[in-house]
């Protein structure tokens, strides 16, 4: 269990990026964090990853406090961040240097096949398309079998078609070992298609605003009415988090939808 207890972050320049954020995330759960810009969602993710330390509160994984990168926590960034001097296969095996060469090679080969890039094992990162590179990044993060995988707007740099493919592909990979996924995004579609739970954040300072459970069976149909209803709920919450007026019709639809369930 990943527990966030009143996590706060104030940067040295006195920017209060995150304030008393608390949440408990069950193993295997997929949580999307969504919010306007400056709501501290990336700050939160970096605190969970151990890349930046929170200035107050604690992040604990199974009782152990996270203050530095942890073996059980992986992360995928917005950019693939592949090492350009390593082949695709060596990039995927980057986190496995403790293993003997045979075991490493076997895992890498399996991971490459799993993300559909078996023929690219010896390619350089520069020879990959954006979507392929991000798949390599996903494979690199998953191959050490993390318990928690953090994703920081992982598909936002990709075109709409590739993004959909990769969202489905991510769910498919997730089903293998069911790690906890925590996804920061500003794409409502993405949050609703992937997450069990959407946490809507509010900016200045960043804090939790609303929590929406997505009670939809997987695989989810992006064109279904239920899907649309959840999307509208998340959008409405987002609008309210930014103190925007919500049109009456939407509010009504929202109310109706709540009754619907």
């Amino acid at each position: 269990m990943l527990a966030l207890d009143r996590v706060g972050k104030t940067y040295p320049n006195r920017v209060h990026a995150l304030s008393r954020f608390s949440a408990e995330i069950r193993p295997g759960e997929i949580v999307a964090i969504i919010g306007g810009s400056g709501c501290g969602k990336s700050t939160l993710l970096r605190a969970i990853a151990g890349l930046d330390r929170a200035t107050s509160g604690t992040v604990t994984l199974d009782g152990a406090t996270i203050t530095a990168p942890h073996a059980k926590i992986g992360i995928i960034f917005q950019e693939p961040r592949l090492l350009p001097w390593l082949s695709v296969a060596d990039n995927i095996g980057f986190g496995l240097s403790d293993l003997p060469a045979d075991a490493r090679r076997e895992k890498v080969t399996r991971a490459l096949a799993r993300v559909g890039l078996a023929d690219k094992a010896n390619a350089w990162p520069r020879e990959l398309s954006g979507g392929q590179a991000q798949r390599v990044a996903i494979a690199r993060a998953l191959v050490p079998q993390p318990e928690v995988l953090l994703l920081d707007e992982p598909f936002s740099a990709l075109d709409a078609f590739t993004r959909r493919d990769l969202q489905d592909h991510l769910l498919d990979l997730w089903a293998d070992t069911r790690p906890t996924l925590i996804l920061v995004t500003h794409d409502v579609d993405e949050a609703v298609v992937l997450a069990d739970r959407v946490l809507v954040m509010r900016p200045r300072p960043g804090r939790l605003f609303e929590e929406i459970a997505i009670n939809l069976a997987r695989p989810r149909d992006r064109n279904s009415l239920h899907f649309d209803n959840f999307k509208r709920r998340v959008l409405t919450a987002l609008d309210r988090s930014l103190d925007r007026n919500v049109p009456d019709s939407e509010a009504a639809a929202n109310a109706g939808e709540a009754m619907w369930w």
Binding site: L51, A71, R81, L83, F94
Partner: peptide, 11 residues
């Protein structure tokens, strides 16, 4: 820095 962070993530 982004590449250095990859190294940090893999400890």
């Amino acid at each position: 820095r982004k590449i250095v962070e990859v190294g940090r993530i893999f400890r």
